[in-house]
């Protein structure tokens, strides 16, 4: 059994550092935390100016959420 975890968006392996968990599906995805990080950006981040909340969403869920918000 492999111990390596795959990104729920692009399917390639995740490293220990550049990752985040999606608030919607709970899956882990690539999230680069530095300018030269050798990983794609597989999610989006949302902030609430008043609540100072920070929310991570994988690209698939973020897209679905934004489409719903537009509707």
């Amino acid at each position: 059994m492999s111990t390596e975890e795959a990104c729920v968006v692009c399917g390639s392996n995740l490293d220990a550092e550049h990752r985040a968990r999606c608030i919607y599906c709970g899956g882990v995805f690539h999230q680069p935390w530095s300018a030269n990080a050798p990983v794609p950006t597989c999610g989006r981040i949302f902030a609430h100016a008043d609540a100072q909340g920070l929310v991570f969403a994988c690209l698939r869920c973020a897209q679905a959420m934004l489409e719903q918000r537009q509707r």
């Binding site: 999606c22 709970g26 300018a35 981040i45 949302f46 609430h48 609540a51 929310v55 959420m65 719903q68």
Partner: peptide
């Protein structure tokens, strides 16, 4: 699973986080 369905994040703005 942490969440189900898609809840619109009312009041949230997308940000570019980090560098």
């Amino acid at each position: 699973m942490l969440g189900t369905g898609t809840i619109p994040l009312i009041g949230y703005q997308e940000v570019a986080f980090g560098v």
